[in-house]
Amino acid sequence: MSKEIKPKRRDFLFTATYAIGAVGVGSAIWPLVDQMNPDSSVKALSTTEVDISSVEPGKTITVLWRGKPIFIRRRTKKEIDEAASVDLKDLKDPEKDSDRAKNPEWLVMVGVCTHLGCVPLGDKGEYKAWFCPCHGSHYDTSGRVRKGPAPKNLEIPKYEFVDNNTIKIG
């Protein structure tokens, strides 16, 4: 029985049948998996325009975008200076403040902790900026993580200034 067994015509047919069968099963399962992804109506709600004319320096407003809170803070001079003066070497996720705020006076961020998704509290924590109560992450006045289990800085959404008083998010 030392003779090598050569694949026969029938083996080829079996393999081909399995392969086609696997493709068939896969294409039947995919719609069942993909139906769980965001649907068209969810995707349609992808931009929000916000009027920011009434926000005073040192105040934050929170708006809802894609079911998530967006923090829009009009920063004070002191906060901007603090955020700009940080040495990048001290940061867990190094990012310059000027890369995070197009207009240094306005900080626009997704108000969702990058650890496990809680909403951080404003004007709290060791950096007098944001603090997440769930698992104790501290963020600075630029929304960068400084302490705690969060791996990344607070996310900056896509946004633009439509005019001096309006921001379009998304």
Binding site: N37, P38, V42, R66, V112, H115, L116, G117
Partner: peptide, 30 residues
Amino acid sequence: TVITNLFSAIPFIGESITTWLWGGYSVDNP
């Protein structure tokens, strides 16, 4: 929110998995 975000810790595909679990960009009606 916290428990579904656990999956976002998975490198590379984590974010897509949480979006898939939620059926949106946060915990919502779906």
